[in-house]
Design a binder for these strands. Structure first.
Lengths: 198, 198
DNA sequence: GGCAACATGACAGTGCACTGTCATGTTGCC
DNA sequence: GGCAACATGACAGTGCACTGTCATGTTGCC
């Protein structure tokens, strides 16, 4: 796969190799699941040696985890920018819906990721850890909005519920038909939550 | 560890070996974490050969996962027995609080389990799978109570939130001081949820 | 007491993620 | 054009979960 490309520059070439590995990994994982995909197979498909795989990624997991963007970091800013007239939940909904289109551009990755997480308990565990970090980050944002020095239990629960809704919407989006946007699904989850409280 | 015990009977002896392995595993995992504990070390501490470990447990994970009881199965019955005058959330709270004392007898196991899950992403993944199963089971119970043939999205969200509260309460109980009961912590979580909806 | 069924240990082996090391390119730069 | 810095492949190796197989107890049962 990797062909001589003289005029490319060192950085560009390594970047290309990196992309080749990620692409190969995504293809194989999409086809066979995460556990059934060996690093050796990924390397072979990317046209590099098995050893090189580990020069680009420290672990097998990192090749798929690296596709993450900074969604929750962005959340913090957008959430804080919501008007004070909104309740925390409403502000959360607005912020998340605002951010949703950014996610929509990554459908392929999200699909493979969701599938990968479902086919591997090790990966699922990593995903959970990420969830916990993200939830903590959301709790922090909520505490800021409430002018608390530190997130309390209420902030944490709220963040956990918000995160739950995001996860559910994301999974549905990845697995459902393409015409439904993440924003719509997210709105639907929030609507359901509202209804639950009567 | 395993000494000659002639009058014991085959079934009792294998049961004893099984317990020895579980106890050894719990001790080692409590001390060093899950990933750092090898099956070989567990076997050694239990006084059996490494091979025998795998005759009793098909995987390393299963030795700690096997400690689970049928909490969520019991939930179904107790939940359905709640009076119709209660909302679903209230009925859920009542049922869970009723079941909580049963959990309270298993503090040691729960502590080790919570710690184990935190020290291993593979185990965390397994735990998640269990969570999903339990959530589905709760959703089913809610659907029954609502006289629905099948759980709809509302049931699922409600179950997911219920399960979230249980998880949070359980973690706090395992990590906090012994004098606080699981039931209290659970009530606190439900109270927080109520407050969240204003 | 002796035989069949079962439990165990010993041993060798597999698969796979991950590492160290060295030799051989390849690139950027003067 | 040539040298230093870097990228890669080849190769050997490790750790650990997990398996197959065989020989040696050990138990239940007549």
């Amino acid at each position: 796969m990797q062909t001589r490309q003289p005029g490319l520059g060192r950085a560009a070439r390594t970047e290309k190799t990196r992309t080749a590995i990620v692409t190969a990994a995504l293809d194989l994982i999409a086809a066979a699941g995460y556990d059934a995909t060996t690093t050796e197979a990924i390397a072979a498909r990317a046209g590099v040696s098995p050893r090189t795989f580990f020069r680009y990624f420290p672990t097998k997991e990192s090749v798929i985890l690296s596709g993450e963007d900074d969604f929750y970091q962005a959340f913090r800013g957008v959430f804080r920018a919501q008007p004070d007239t909104l309740t925390d939940i409403a502000a959360m909904r607005e912020a998340l819906v605002t951010l949703a289109p950014g996610v929509a551009r990554r459908r392929r990755w999200t699909q493979v990721y969701v599938r990968a997480v479902e086919t591997s308990s090790a990966l699922r565990g990593q995903d959970q850890i990420k969830h916990d970090v993200n939830t903590a980050s959301m709790a922090q944002a909520i505490a800021e909005r409430r002018a608390l020095p530190e997130p309390d239990e209420d902030c944490e629960l709220l963040a956990a519920i918000g995160h739950l809704l995001v996860s559910r919407a994301l999974r549905k989006w990845a697995m459902g038909p393409a015409r439904v946007s993440p924003a719509e699904l997210l709105e639907a989850e929030f609507a359901r939550l509202d209804k639950l409280l009567d």
